[in-house]
Amino acid sequence: MKPSDWLMINQQPFKIAIASGKGGTGKTTLSVNLAAYIAEQEDVVLVDLDVEEPNSGLFFEGKLVHEEDNLKMIPQWDESLCTLCGLCPKVCNFHAIMQLGPTILVFPELCHSCYACAELCPVNALPMTPKVIGKLRDYQVDKLHFVESRLNIGEEQAVASIAKTKKYVAGKYAEVRIALFDSPPGTSCPVIEATKDADFVILITEPTPFGLHDLTLAVETMRKLEKPFGVVVNRDGIGNDEVLRYCKAENIPVLARIPNSRKIAELYSAGKLIYPEFPEIRESLGHILDYCLSTAERSPA
């Protein structure tokens, strides 16, 4: 299958997630530069799924084309119906419900919207009701479509917002060939949600002991999810060569090495793209993109 046929067969963009074990290794740097690079030629969607601290938007001054609330369903106690049978705190795996004598307390920030209490309550005294937990915003700069979700301060559950944002993108941008997902750091639930339906995952790391440690966790996660993935080494030149040796020993493709450079750090901190100033990085982005798309040929259609 040719990459250009991908869309026709799947009717969805080719989804590339940019993830990392360790934070601060360059997910956003790579995401925004790759997105801008692709947008020189064709429409592309960049989705910031790091809903706890989205920052890709700092690199674009786009026109806001759409905005909507992100909701989470939480139980609301109906005192008039409740018989105080004591079942709801027992069935809540997340300790989001307490029974204090004649009072049922719901802790919305602990609730995972599993519906167990609402469904199992014999008298329907805990109906699920929507709560606004953040906002989704969709911006456009020429061919680049940028979607981000942002949790309200104090909200802890990133997964629902991530899932909802992906759904929005799937519905609105089904006809765009490539979608990039800037993922949260780590290997916990938000990362799983952000990467689980990606067609390819780029793991970006730095060549340091911390970078390697967290990279191995990310690799194990991606193997468990059975995702095709490759590694980009950022700040190449610092640390040691353990990351490269690890990738070689594990047969993990190293898609690019971005040099450690004060100029890059300065551009990034000023909210600017780096590849227009560095021809070799432009070349690396092309190489990364070609590699990602080439995996479409190998995937079962």
Binding site: P89, F94, H95, A96, M98, Q99, L100, G101, L110, E156
Partner: peptide, 15 residues
């Protein structure tokens, strides 16, 4: 063994 909700779980026990 609880990733979340230790505070409410212990509060319930104390109550």
């Amino acid at each position: 063994n609880e990733a979340h909700g230790a505070g409410t779980a212990t509060s319930q026990r104390i109550f």
